[in-house]
Amino acid sequence: MKIVIANGTHEADFIIKKFKKDKHKLIVINSDKDFGNYISSSNRLPVIFGDPSKAYVLEDAEAWDADVFIALSTNDIDNYVACITAKKLFNIKRVVSVVRNPKRVDLFKTLGIDSVICSTYLLGESIKNESIIEDFIKTISIENEKIVITELIIEKQCLIVNQKIRNANIPQYLNISCIYREPEVIIANGDTIILPNDKLVIATTPEHHLEAIEFIQRKEIPHAS
């Protein structure tokens, strides 16, 4: 892959080292001459000096048609302009921006940045996910939070246990993608039978997320004796 890394300090250095190991073609641009020299000597690669939100700098860097462009400066707006320039004028397939201000995450995505990373926002989201749902459920969101993937452990009292998925009346909004059953991973189909202690990986939309968890975890109502 051809990857452009625009600005940033130690995080840029870290990413460069990681990608270099994987033999990607790296283009590094930095507007700080001293840090650029440091990155250049510590990674033994050329660093283009300049402001990556300027088209002529991306031109000098021969950034055309790169697969990924990552903007790492501490100025959100500069990162936005660099990403939009990369995408619109240099035909770069995927642009990624780091932002400081969490309010800009959704805004930047709406304006066309493919991926927006904000440490405060991520922290908030993970605290939210940890607190809504009990701790044995892990949740991640992908595609701008349009899909939620959740990992659930099946207890033996669950109604869904010992049934073929086909016969379990699984609602439309929920898909059982795979099952982790020590030591193997099973790709679920209609004939798969769910067993106690299975770890289910389910995909849903965010609207039906809690409903889906509730469905999977329905338990037998104990009969009064």
């Binding site: 100025n75 707006i77 500069d78 936005y80 302009v81 939009i84 304006l111």
Partner: peptide
């Protein structure tokens, strides 16, 4: 310029 462009896009 970058601020102006961003606000214009907004």
């Amino acid at each position: 310029d970058n601020v102006n462009l961003f606000i214009a896009h907004l």
